[in-house]
Amino acid sequence: MQEDLDITTGEKPARAFSIRTILPNAVTLFAFMAGLTSIRFALAGKWELAVFAVLLAGVFDGLDGTVARLLKSTSRFGAELDSLSDVVAFGVAPAVVLYLWGLQSLDRLGWGVALIYAIAMALRLARFNARLDDEEEPRKRLGFLTGVPAPMGAALLLVPLMVDFALEDVLIKSYPALIIIYTVAIALLIVSTIPTISLKAIRIRREAFVPVMLVIGVVIAGLFVRTWLVLLIIAALYLASMPWTYMAYERRRKQKGI
């Protein structure tokens, strides 16, 4: 069958991409730029803006996949771009911010600790890409993630800064040894195989919908009033939920006979 030709040139038209293909990748680039911008703020000593930029990258990272699925424009290119963006926004940027804020005084040791976190994030993302098409992975089959996801890992890494923002009398940066221990612990959680909560797998019963929306409203209101304190509470609840998540995974795994 003869292919359609361009009526002006008489040649085969070049393949074109629709806006629905471009839009998810543009959102991913916003996350990438937010991550880089956080480094700029850190170099200028604007710590709250630096942390906020990383958190904003997390918001964009959550949106790009949703936009792609809604527009039915998921692609391998988008997946690769998303992974590269994650390395910068949630691996390199938080490591640099934390180093400049609280580890720079330790010179090589501080930089080495920052590198440990960045390497852990790169390894996690590489593992994620390698298992992208593996639908038989036990945790994925049961609706769980493997290890702490990249955006949450970056947010947890920056908790020491949030403590200083929320509690002005507490200067965590004065205790670099604690920051080192905490950073290494977060790096281990990122590369671990511990099952963690997947928001996409959570289902809310009909009768619980209104109470859950009320809680979400309270959290959003709290973010406007005491931003850093509310974020600290969310981070603490996430860490506290990990043992419960592990028990829920083991229970479901035994029920399914996996």
Rank of each mutant, 00 (worst) to 15 (best):
Y117G: 00
A93R: 07
S75Q: 08
W101Y: 11
F90Y: 07
S83G: 03
L106N: 08
G110Q: 06
V97M: 03
L100I: 11
W111N: 10
A122W: 02
V92M: 12
D86R: 01
L106K: 04
A122H: 08
L103A: 02
G110L: 00
A126H: 11
V88E: 01
L100A: 07
L123I: 13
L84E: 06
S85Y: 00
L123C: 13
F77I: 11
G112I: 10
F77V: 09
S105P: 11
L70H: 12
V97R: 08
I116T: 11
V87Q: 10
S75E: 05
A89P: 12
V87Y: 08
A122K: 11
G91K: 00
R69Y: 01
W101G: 00
I119C: 09
W101C: 03
I116Y: 08
E80V: 13
V113L: 04
Q104S: 15
S75V: 11
W111I: 05
W101F: 08
D82H: 09
R69H: 00
A93N: 12
Y117R: 06
R124Y: 03
A114S: 07
G112S: 00
L103V: 09
R76H: 15
A126F: 02
G102I: 06
D86Q: 08
K72E: 06
A122M: 15
A89H: 01
L71P: 12
L98E: 03
L115R: 08
Y117I: 00
L115D: 12
S75K: 14
A122N: 13
V92T: 15
R108Q: 15
S105D: 15
Y99H: 06
K72V: 02
V87K: 13
A95K: 02
D107C: 14
V92P: 09
G78Y: 02
K72H: 15
S73N: 12
L109Q: 14
M121I: 07
A118N: 02
E80Y: 12
V97E: 05
R69K: 09
Y99P: 12
L84I: 12
A79I: 12
L70Y: 03
S75D: 08
L98K: 07
L125A: 03
L109H: 14
S73E: 04
F90W: 02
D82F: 03
G102K: 03
Y117E: 09
S75N: 08
A126Y: 03
R124K: 00
